[in-house]
Design a protein around this nucleic acid. Structure first.
Lengths: 107, 107
DNA sequence: TTTATATATGATAAAAATTTCATATAATGA
DNA sequence: TCATTATATGAAATTTTTATCATATATAAA
């Protein structure tokens, strides 16, 4: 059974969703803008936005036929913390053989 | 291709590995203690400890035939941040239908 | 009121992560 | 040295996550 922490990581610790949060750190954006900037599939993005919305990591408002997304403040801070940590540990992370990187070149 | 952030989440955002970090926040522990406290498989734990070590989220020293693990300070702080965030968003996380919780009871 | 644009939904396919299993190594004490 | 305890390793099986596909809805403009 999943606990709140598991659910948190499921939502937050995902490449595509985290990239969305990184973009929204700088400015509000509609789905179309995000799609272009991140170069992701439309349906994929839509699924991810819904997840982030459900978890209240972001909010949305309508503007014409577009939907404009915005990151919430607490989430923005946490994103910054993670970015900082990644920078500090980058060297070691890239060497950690347990993670998938290692498997490349072994096929 | 994976970047440093992906690798970070692979290592950090995992139920078992995060539980290990949570335990080590309070005190140093050897593998056997962790196994008992967390109720996990021995080999599984060993894999996870190696991952955390490689990433330098924890360190280890020998003591007789045991190995005593310790969390590093920066990682401890990040764990605290996450715990705080989870507490704040718990309600929404549990309602997010995208995450697996929803699938239970559907089979 | 038909068409085009912007975005959402649900089911399945594909890829990746986690667990399990069989076995290895390392240190200590008898 | 041999047995025992503590922990580690690598590969295969299982489970979960992510991507894709086919299609739906909602808004606005023609």
């Amino acid at each position: 059974m999943k606990n709140a922490t598991d659910l948190f990581f499921d939502a937050f610790a995902n490449r595509n969703r985290f990239n969305i949060l990184m973009q929204l750190k700088n400015k509000e954006m509609c789905a179309g803008d995000l799609q272009q900037t991140l170069g992701v599939e439309q349906t994929n993005l839509s699924h991810d936005l819904k997840c982030l919305l459900n978890c209240k990591f972001i909010s949305v408002r309508k503007e014409g036929r577009k939907r404009v997304y915005r990151i919430n403040n607490e989430t923005k801070e946490l994103v910054d913390e993670v970015v900082k940590h990644v920078k500090n540990y980058e060297t070691y992370l890239k060497k950690c053989g347990i993670l998938k990187e290692e498997k490349n070149g072994r096929i």
